[in-house]
């Protein structure tokens, strides 16, 4: 872990971009410089009644401006939605371990063998979990240019949003909605994955000419992450997932957000944090500090 930045940053935009979904932009050169895809920022509400930070994943960084996308889920995010451009917000970040914070990742100066040559990256996102993958897509694209094909599979409850943002950086954007007629595919992301990648496993011939994803990144509700994990495990695709949990501090002090993981013992999948399993074979890890991004196969689902 490295020290996060903290300050009262000017809000440049805080607007609804879809039903119950807001995009918050703020000017924070120090956070912008340090941020990696998959990391998050702690947003503190003014007033003193709601003390705990709202940990929100970073959806984009452009110049000095950091973008967070959040859903209104309770009193805190409702109050946050009332903050106007021009106001200052107490924010701390970037926090946590991101998608590419390991040696040999596709954005590494020396990526591992799997990412040296053209490869396909699969993004699996659900609802408000989609925007952080947009930041991840931009980072892979910046690092690998034309030597990567990026395919996004995104699911929404209603009408898809953030589509243009993904289309700008991805080669293919496949959309699913649980509302009939709202997207090309009616159903959830798991069904969309099965339909879009019908081949049995990585290495087998392609029925539809799709390249084989070597890496998948996922962010969304836990059942979706579990489905993505099962899908990728069956097809031998390396998957990194971003877990969500109620947090206390968001920086690693309180152990309020720990999850069960297991030791992988795979040099290509370096793991953060403690490495001594308990009597049941599990290692408790902090979602905020050791994650939120983990290898799918280290998570005890």
């Amino acid at each position: 872990m490295v020290k996060a930045h903290r300050g009262q940053y000017p809000v440049t935009k805080n607007e609804s971009i879809a039903d119950g979904i807001y995009e918050l932009c703020f000017e924070a050169p120090d956070i912008a410089r340090a941020a990696n895809a998959g990391q998050f920022a702690n947003v503190y509400l003014p007033g003193g009644a709601m003390l705990l930070p709202r940990p929100i994943s970073i959806a984009d960084v452009r110049g000095d401006v950091v973008t967070l996308v959040y859903a209104i889920v309770g009193g805190g995010t409702k109050a946050l939605a009332g903050i106007k451009a021009g106001a200052r917000l107490e924010i701390m970040g970037p926090l946590g371990t991101g998608y590419f914070d390991y040696a040999g990742s596709p954005t590494d100066a020396a990526p591992s063998g799997a990412f040296e040559n053209p490869f396909t990256a699969l993004l699996v996102g659900g609802g408000v979990g989609a925007p952080p993958l947009h930041f991840a897509a931009r980072r892979i694209r910046a690092a690998r240019r034309g030597r990567v094909k990026i395919v996004a599979c995104l699911g929404f409850r209603g009408h898809p949003w953030y589509r243009e943002e993904f289309e700008r950086v991805c080669d293919e954007v496949l959309l699913a909605s649980e509302a009939e007629g709202a997207a090309a595919f009616h159903g959830n992301v798991a069904h969309l994955l099965d339909k879009s990648f019908p081949y049995k496993e990585a290495g087998s011939p392609q029925a539809n000419g799709q390249a084989l994803p070597s890496l998948a990144l996922a962010c969304g509700p836990r059942p979706m992450l579990k489905a993505a994990s099962d899908f990728c495990a069956a097809k031998n695709i390396t998957l990194r997932v971003s877990l969500e949990e109620r947090m206390g501090c968001g920086y690693g002090a309180c152990a309020g957000c720990t999850c069960k993981t297991r030791l992988l013992g795979d040099v290509l999948k370096p793991q953060n944090g403690p490495n001594m399993p308990n009597a049941e074979g599990f290692i408790k890890k902090k979602v905020c500090a050791h994650g939120p991004v983990f290898w799918a196969d280290e998570v005890v689902w």
């Binding site: 009644a49 003390l51 705990l52 949990e245 206390g248 309020g256 049941e280």
Partner: peptide, 19 residues
């Protein structure tokens, strides 16, 4: 091992924990 999540909840001017 401690408890399972959720282990944190907010309250007016405070927080609940069950770590």
């Amino acid at each position: 091992d401690g408890n399972d999540a959720p282990k944190i909840a907010e309250a007016y001017g405070g927080m609940l924990n069950a770590i």
